[in-house]
Amino acid sequence: MDIKMNKNKKITQETIAQHLNYSRNTVSKVFNGNGGVKERTRQRILSKAAELGYKHPLLEDEPNDELLGVSEKNDTIHLEIAFVCHANSFGNSFWMPIIQNMERHLSQNHCTMRFVIVEPENEQSLILPSTLTIKPLDGIVIAGLFQDEYYKKVASLNIPLVSFDISRDLSGNNKICDVVMVENTAASYQLTQHLISQGHTKIAFVGNRDSCQSFYERWDGYHRAMNENSLTRNNELLLNFKSSNKHFDTAGFYQQLLEIDELPTAFVCANDNIAKYAYQLQAPPYNLYKKMTVCGFDNTPELTSYISNHSTARIFADELGQALGEQILWRIKNPNHQFRCLRLCVSVILK
């Protein structure tokens, strides 16, 4: 917020709050000596108060620029942002462009991005990596599918937090942080309508609908299209993973299909990775289909190189990475605003 000052106007705590886009209550806590304010926030308030000429005993000493991360040359504040994810995010063609573009945007805004890997056993035990708790952080971006309690554990650090996607139970009015997502429902609806227009009636949705908000919304788009075409009761089919982990189990998927009286003629998959494994059903040792019709989501290189004629939805990784960077910087500047959900459009590719 850029506020022009009237030199004759008295500087108050409200003035300081407006300049920093903090609440007056936060500023008041600092000058009244109350707790509940992070040291970095406290130092920013004191620095801005001194700059504006606010008179208070706390300002008799010069502010500590080192705590603020202020460069002596250009007064630039350098921020430390943690990117929290699973190990399989690295080297993954879906995640890497997002990570690279987010890091580029943060770097352009004088931020350092710290990578924090969560091991599966630590997630199950709700153990936070020491890099989140020992060194001071200005913000956290979390990406990947985590259990509800782990999201809550990270949020309990009271550090500005942005999540790419979120679990179903923490969406809507149950949010504990800002969430960045893509437009899922409309795209999945369009993909399903495309299959129906090709003459398919027995269409299955493949993916754990309740594993995250994105998968649920993609199922919802599929469900709406089926319902509008009166195909719900006898033709709609939801196929979940049978494996206990979050990865697709082709053998388990195969067994589910063997238990069905009438095989689906087409599949709407929750993402391209699932679609890739679903395609294996037409190859040995399964040989369940001579030719499969499968829709994916994400437009990842692994699937497009594996089979080129599938319909999918393209996610713009460069814009998504930038959006995550922009949102965490906004949240750092606006810690007391209501949580927000930012959505980016996708491009549906029909074949």
Rank of each mutant, 00 (worst) to 15 (best):
I3Q: 03
I3N: 08
I11Q: 00
T15E: 03
I16H: 07
I16G: 07
S23Q: 09
R24E: 11
T26H: 00
T26G: 00
F31M: 05
V37N: 11
A50L: 12
Y54G: 07
L58N: 12
P63E: 05
E66D: 15
L68Q: 09
E72Q: 14
L79R: 15
F83R: 02
V84F: 03
H86T: 07
S93E: 08
F94N: 10
M102P: 09
L106E: 04
S107E: 13
Q108S: 12
Q124W: 03
L132G: 05
T133N: 10
D138Y: 08
D148C: 02
Y150F: 15
L157A: 09
I159Q: 06
P160L: 10
V162N: 08
F164D: 08
I166K: 06
K202N: 15
A204H: 07
F205I: 03
V206A: 07
V206W: 08
V206P: 05
V206C: 12
N208L: 06
S211C: 13
C212K: 04
Q213A: 13
Q213R: 09
Q213H: 12
S214L: 05
E217C: 05
L231N: 08
L231H: 06
N235M: 05
L237W: 12
L237R: 13
S243P: 01
A251L: 12
F253S: 00
L258M: 04
L263H: 02
F267G: 01
A275S: 05
K276C: 05
Y277Q: 10
L281G: 06
Q282V: 02
N287H: 02
D298M: 03
N299W: 01
L303S: 06
A313L: 08
A317S: 14
D318C: 02
A323M: 15
I328T: 06
N334D: 09
L342S: 07
